[in-house]
Design a protein around this nucleic acid. Structure first.
Lengths: 370, 370
DNA sequence: ATTAGCACTCGAAAATAAAGAGTGCCAGCA
DNA sequence: TGCTGGCACTCTTTATTTTCGAGTGCTAAT
């Protein structure tokens, strides 16, 4: 890959930059002007022909300008592109947006996705692959004779709960006993380890003939299963339609349908690609899915705490400004990591910010500026 | 509106049916065959001309067939269309899909949306306008010296919680005291009623100098605000792109962008229209938003319990099969009402179904058949 | 009132023509 | 050997024209 002249690199970079900006195949004449080289179009043409032969460029038809191939983009991303730093203003926008909401973790991740979509003008996707979670502590709140609440404090510092209404009555002591048993036997346990036999054992231990233990265990399993799977969401898919490469409704439809299934999103980042590890770029055919063959995905890692890693990124055509997108996404990911570390699990969340008066005086729910 | 001959009605209905099916303007010859009338195309032409004059039909250009106007659709929806009952098979599909998931309320509503989208092949929207909620009961779970969990049991039978980590330590007694005070003073209270003065009073009552009361109050406000607003989501927006009327990418973009803002969705059903009250049909220009001017929305009411009403529906072009869509949506809405009433708040949720073994043996999360 | 007949309109699709951008290659020049 | 200007050629894009046909509105006859 390094067996490529300096001048060719410069030309390739210029082609990519130009094509990314205009979406039109770029020709020798334009390059002669724009690329910093002081050579004639004819010379450029020779170089272009060679680059095409090497597979970095392609031409839509015999008599058109050149367009980068996936291989061309790959080289560009790995070696050529200059890492553009964010403008101060953008950095500030991101900082403040992320600082604003120190709410629940899921919500912050969702918000980060929205932010990414807004800032990049591409559909954003956000994933939080919670590693196998476990219950840290069980609480059963006895409400009345036929109502109690299950509260699970998870190792991931999230809390799950469920209100249970019974068609018969139980005594508070019973609820307490169940709680104790669960805390003794099901803390730190993974989903797979909640076996029917262990449940029966617990049932015997508390002398439960009414299936209460089963209810609590069922909910626990549910909570673990939900946390165990990666959450993946797409924000603002409509933004695709603005792009010239998706003016063909069939293409747009195929891609958008594909992306609207969360299952597909989850599978997305499974490919491994050369290059930086904090930011992952999947270019066109590097994607496994047929539907993504002429689209690219840029993903940035963030740290969701406890060593769990999430991803936030954008989807778009192969023709994207990888350098600025990568910069923006890294910055967002970094900010998100900090926000999650600082806010959600560390010190008292937004202690200064959550104070009542301000919060309550602007009491219209969910006012977002867009 | 009733000043319209029986034959005209028949013809109008035929035009609508045909146009809905084919998306092509329909002409006199076809109508002469399809509509049950035993008259010649020429006669039909006369009638068509009159219907056009009355504003029920329009022709795209001088020499094309007729297309229903919004007014035409309105008449069709209100008087003409035959309420087609669902096929047994469809009914069964819906029943079983809804019965399957007896999870949390929000989840069920979301699932119903997905079901609607799948069954109708249109983007679905689901809204749950929870009326002003209040807290029924506060619980503070003391975890360790600098951690506790806030658990709010709401009147709507949902539970909200938050994990609080403190940068200093508190005693269990203190947490208990705060809990007592909140239960005494903030149960059944709306968001607006949580005033700074009441909070200060509570702070004095428990001798809180560290802002713990403020944290709990802040979370309470947040929970109330969130519940108070209508939740609205769109499922499967990509389905729009399959329709001929959205082959124009600009149209598609405009509508999809509009729909991807939840705020817009919330505003949607504010118009009141003539006709049945359980199912609401907004036809083209009856919609307030510019972006919806040549689209229609069909919404069915469901009962989310406690007299709170939600909506579930679909969005599409004005050319939709209102009768079958209305039927499907009513059925889903009805089923959802039952499911919510029976499962979530009534008896023990899915007592038989939630049993452990089956649930745990198929332990791959979220396997949905699609 | 209904119908057959017919001239007419107007869009969609097909056919044709013109324009333009960019290439590849060759021959000349440093 | 590498660069450059020149030039013929290719192939898309766009515009223009032509053709075709579906559907109408009107009139006159039943």
């Amino acid at each position: 890959m390094a067996d490529i002249s300096e001048r060719k690199k410069k030309i390739l970079a210029a082609v990519v930059d130009e094509y990314v900006a205009t979406a039109e195949p770029v020709g020798s004449k334009l390059l002669a002007e724009k690329a910093g080289l002081r050579v004639s179009p004819a010379t450029i043409r020779n170089e272009l022909a060679e680059l095409t032969g090497m597979g970095y460029l392609a031409q839509p038809h015999t008599s058109a300008g050149r367009v980068p191939t996936a291989k061309g983009y790959r080289l560009y991303v790995n070696e050529l592109m200059e890492r553009k730093p964010l403008s101060d203003e953008e950095a500030r926008t991101i900082d403040s947006s992320l600082a604003q909401r120190s709410g629940r973790r899921e919500r912050m991740i969702g918000d980060a996705g929205r932010l990414a979509a807004e800032l990049t003008n591409y559909p954003a996707l956000s994933m939080s692959p919670a590693g196998a979670d476990t219950v840290e502590r069980f609480d059963l709140i006895y409400v009345d004779a036929n109502t109690f609440i299950i509260v699970l404090l998870m190792r991931s510092d999230t809390v799950r709960n469920k209100l249970v209404r019974l068609p018969f009555s139980v005594e508070e002591a019973m609820v307490r006993k169940i709680c104790t048993v669960f805390n003794a036997n099901f803390c730190g346990v993974t989903e797979a380890e909640i076996t029917p036999s262990r449940i029966s054992a617990a049932e015997r231990a508390v002398d439960d003939s009414m299936g209460l233990v089963a209810v609590v265990a069922g909910f626990t399993i549910e909570a673990l299963a939900e946390r165990g799977g990666t959450q993946a969401t797409l924000t603002d898919g409509a933004k695709l339609l603005r792009l010239p490469e998706f003016r063909d409704p069939d293409k747009a439809h195929s891609l958008m349908s594909y992306l609207s299934d969360a299952e597909n999103l989850r599978r997305l980042p499974s490919v491994s690609v050369p290059g930086n590890d904090d930011i992952k770029v999947l270019i066109g055919p590097e994607n496994v899915a047929e539907e993504l063959r002429d689209s690219s995905v840029i993903l940035a890692k963030y740290d969701a705490g406890d060593g769990v890693e999430g991803l936030i990124g954008v989807v778009g055509p192969t023709r994207m400004d990888y350098s600025v997108l990568a910069a923006k996404l890294s910055y967002i990911a970094e900010g998100l990591s900090k926000a999650l570390a600082g806010g959600a699990s560390g010190a008292l969340p937004g202690f200064g910010k959550l104070m009542i008066p301000e919060n309550n005086l602007q009491n219209m729910p969910e006012k977002r500026t867009e």
